[in-house]
């Protein structure tokens, strides 16, 4: 561990804002890239299932 206390870890010798901001951007882009396709999949399957039901009822 390079830091003695939590507040030192957060401050990072005055570079804290830069470091934490870039990590926040990085992590949110990574998570977004996993959540968005899962959300798309859910919507897609819901829509296709609805369309299939409609086709079956029409017959």
């Amino acid at each position: 561990m390079q830091f003695e206390t939590i507040s030192e870890f957060i401050k990072m010798d005055g570079h804290g804002l830069y470091v934490w901001l870039s990590y926040a951007i990085g992590v949110s882009i990574l998570i977004g890239n996993l959540i968005l396709p899962l959300f798309t999949r859910k919507e897609l399957i819901k829509n296709l299932a609805r369309r299939l039901r409609r086709e079956n009822n029409a017959q």
Partner: peptide, 25 residues
């Protein structure tokens, strides 16, 4: 990697802790 980069990697002798951005950049 994140824990290692943020807390355990040694700071750069010129750039200090801002160099930790390298680990995602």
């Amino acid at each position: 990697g994140l824990v290692w980069a943020l807390a355990f990697a040694p700071p750069d002798y010129q750039q200090g802790n801002s160099f930790r951005i390298m680990y995602i950049h």
